[in-house]
């Protein structure tokens, strides 16, 4: 027994860096930065005792309370529903319009200025208009999510399709490929990496749109919750909601990235 323990003890420090430690060494600094940030936050929270900067532990407490009371779950579900519908529509419209713009010069010429204008302009400027059209329904939130996310997807998809190596299209034509075959067999796979970059940007913007829409017009879901506690100066609760939003954003991004990695593993 003792010998085994000794040998294990000898082996431990040697084998650890080789097998276990190495995969983590890349994320080591990130982890340290995260832990350091939390410690700093906690310390500043107690030291400064400002109402707008509650210690981190209090935020976790508020989060825990939210979960226990079940108030967060319903709101998360409501928010996610708006996000899913809005982003789903953005994805379909964005890919379709983007593909047409990328492939056909005339469509691009006709739509480019509008897509650019909407991409640059702050979506919430149109809040009153959405309000006028949809009233206080959930459709407002969906409209805002679309407004936030669709244009970047259109833009990236159009650029992706337009910049596909013309030699590949010519190659396909030389074998007699028709427009549909060129699109499905060449243009689409070739532009997937750039299209996915747009989808990821769009996803991030969709989460922002969801919260902004909920806070400023729709008054539902997580945004409405944040708005309510914000007006009551309940900083720890606001931060707790912000954390939930952050987690949603990270999970959404992770999903997109996983699909992306599956489909574009050929990229260097």
């Amino acid at each position: 027994m003792a010998r085994v323990a000794m040998e294990a003890g000898k082996m431990g420090p040697l084998s650890m860096p080789l097998t276990l430690w190495r995969p983590f060494s890349g994320t080591w600094l990130e982890g340290a930065a995260l832990v350091g940030g939390v410690i700093l936050w906690e310390a500043l929270g107690w030291l400064l005792a400002m109402p707008w900067l509650p210690p981190f532990s209090k935020i976790i407490g508020a989060l825990n309370q939210f979960i226990q009371s079940g108030v967060i779950l319903g709101n998360v579900a409501s928010s996610l529903q708006g996000l899913a519908i809005g982003f789903g529509i953005s994805l379909i419209v964005g890919l379709l319009v983007g593909a047409l713009m990328g492939r056909y010069r005339r469509v691009e010429k006709a739509l480019d200025i509008y897509v650019n204008a909407f991409l640059i302009s702050p979506a919430m400027i149109f809040a009153p208009i959405f309000f006028a059209i949809f009233g206080l329904s959930g459709a407002v939130r969906i409209a805002v999510v679309i407004m936030y996310s669709v244009f970047v997807i259109i833009m990236n998809t159009a650029t992706a399709i337009r910049t596909v190596d013309p030699a590949l299209v010519e190659m396909a034509s030389s074998f007699g490929a028709n427009e549909r075959q060129i699109f499905l067999r060449v243009l689409l796979p070739a532009s997937l990496p750039l299209i996915f970059a747009g989808i990821r940007l769009g996803m991030g913007r969709a989460v922002k749109g969801m919260i902004n829409g909920e806070m400023l017009i729709a008054m539902v879901g997580l945004g409405a919750l944040a708005q309510r506690y914000g007006s009551q100066f309940e900083a720890s609760k606001v931060f707790a909601i912000a954390m939930v939003v952050l987690i949603i954003a990270l999970v959404c991004d992770w999903i997109v990235q996983t699909v992306e990695n599956r489909l574009t593993s050929w990229v260097d």
Binding site: D165, L168, E170, M171, S174, F175, G176, P189, L192, W266
Partner: peptide
């Protein structure tokens, strides 16, 4: 273009996402 002709391109024009077999079979599949 017609089935009586096939082109070999200067810069190969291979599909970077497809393996050798898929690239070779491309014309047939089309």
């Amino acid at each position: 273009p017609g089935p009586d002709r096939a082109v070999v391109f200067q810069n190969f024009a291979l599909m970077p996402w497809a393996d050798v077999l898929t690239n070779v079979a491309f014309g047939l599949e089309i």
